[in-house]
Design a protein around this nucleic acid. Structure first.
Lengths: 197, 197
DNA sequence: CGCGACGTTGATTTGCCTCAACGATTGTGG
DNA sequence: CCACAATCGTTGAGGCAAATCAACGTCGCG
C-alpha cells in the first residue's frame, strides 16, 4: 500500500506541490478498492458517488442505447481517472456504466470528500481544473477526428496514441470506442497488413 | 459599459459569490473588444493569448484540414466562453481558428491575468473548474450522439438545444458542426417538412 | 447590374453496416 | 481433464446512409 500511495502522490505532484501534512490529509480521503474483471464500478441508473483513480488494471465507461447497442466512451488504465462526471457533479442518476476489463485496483474519493478537499486545500481545485482542461481538449480532438478522418485513419491514430491500451483490450472494444463495427475493423486491419507487405 | 459589466458579473455569480472589491478586481482584468463580421479572434498558427467571453454577437471555432475542408467545433453566443484552450494553456500555436459570424462584442482575459486571478481569488479556479466540467460533459454527449444517432436526429437535437443559434447562422455552418454536407442537411430538412404535413 | 454566398434538387458513388457462417481460443462446470 | 459454451476474430454477400459532383434559382451586397 505504501508504494501505491507513492504512485498517486507522484501523480498529484505533476500538478501541484504539497506539504507532507497535506499529503497525509489527501491520502486519508482515499478509499482503496479492488474490482474483478466484469465487475461494475458505476451502474447506469445509480448515482455516481466517487471519482476513481486507477492504480493498475483497466476500466471502461460505456453507454447503452435503448436498442441495446453499446458504445465505449472512455478507457482508463494506470494513472487515469474515470467516473460519470455528470452524475457525480449533479447527483442525478448516471447514464454511463463503468466496469472492469481486467482485475483492477482503484482509489476512490467520495463527492463530499472532494468538496472538503477543495475547500481545505484550494490547490486541488487547480489540479482538477487542469486535468479537466486536458480532458476537454482530448474530447475536442476526438470530435474533430470523428468528423474528418475515415475509419482506417482513426484506428491508426488510436494505436499510435494508446499503444498500451490497444495491446490489452479486445478488438471488439476498440471498434466500439472508434465508432465502427468489429467486422469493419477486422477488414481495416487485414487491408493494412496487405499494404505493409 | 456599466450594463455589460453587470451582465458578466451576474454570469460569474451563478458560480461563486464575490465581494465588491473582488468584483472590481475582476473587472479590471477584462479587456473590451469589438470584432466585425468575418474578423479573426484567433488564427491557427498564432498562440491563443486570451479567454473570450461573448457579450453579444456570435463567434465560431473551426478546424481546417490540410485538404481545405473545414469543420466547426463550437459556436459561442451571448454568455459563452471561447478560445483555443490547448493553445491558451500550453502556449503552443493554435490549431483552431476563431472568427466572428456577426459583429460581436467580447471581454478578453489574458492568460497571465487569469493566472493572477486564480492566485488572488481561488474561487475563480472553482468557477472555471465547474465550467470546464460542464463543457467536458457536453463534449462527451456530442461524441455519443455522433456515434449512435443518424444525421436527421442529430439535426433535430441541435435545433432543440440551440434554437437561438440555429436561427442566426447559415445552414452551411450548422451542417459543418453536425458533421454532414450542406446538401444532405438540405435533404433532411425537406424530408422533415414533408413529414410534418 | 453582376458577382459570390447560400439553399435546393437529382444522379451516381462509396464507406461502412448488417447478417450469416466459420475457425480459433478461452474458460467453465461436470 | 475433458466437453461444451461463450467470446473473439475473420471473411463474404448484399444493402443503405451519406458523400460527391453538377446544375440551377435566389438573394444580398459591392
Amino acid at each position: 500500500m505504501e508504494s501505491t500511495h507513492a504512485r498517486i502522490l507522484s501523480y498529484v505532484a505533476r500538478y501541484i506541490d504539497l506539504t507532507s501534512e497535506e499529503e497525509q490529509y489527501f491520502i486519508s480521503l482515499l478509499r482503496y478498492r479492488r474490482f474483478l474483471k466484469r465487475q461494475f464500478v458505476v451502474q447506469a441508473g445509480d448515482v455516481c458517488r466517487y471519482e476513481n483513480y486507477v492504480i493498475n488494471g483497466c476500466l471502461r465507461a460505456y453507454f447503452v442505447e435503448p436498442g441495446g447497442a453499446f458504445h465505449i466512451v472512455q478507457f482508463a488504465v494506470e494513472d487515469w481517472w474515470i467516473a460519470d462526471l455528470a452524475s457525480l457533479l449533479s447527483g442525478e442518476p448516471a447514464t454511463l456504466n463503468v466496469d472492469a476489463l481486467e482485475d483492477t485496483e482503484v482509489f476512490q474519493i467520495e463527492r463530499s470528500a472532494l468538496d472538503e478537499l477543495y475547500s481545505r486545500i484550494p490547490k486541488f481545485e487547480r489540479m482538477f481544473r487542469i486535468m479537466l482542461a486536458g480532458a476537454f481538449v482530448a474530447h475536442q480532438n476526438r470530435i474533430i477526428d470523428n468528423l474528418c478522418k475515415p475509419a482506417a485513419e482513426r484506428y491508426l491514430a488510436f494505436v499510435e496514441r494508446y499503444r498500451n491500451i490497444e495491446q490489452r483490450v479486445p478488438q471488439t472494444q476498440i471498434a466500439s470506442y472508434l465508432g465502427m463495427t468489429p467486422e469493419f475493423l477486422s477488414q481495416i486491419r487485414s487491408n493494412l497488413k496487405k499494404k505493409r507487405r
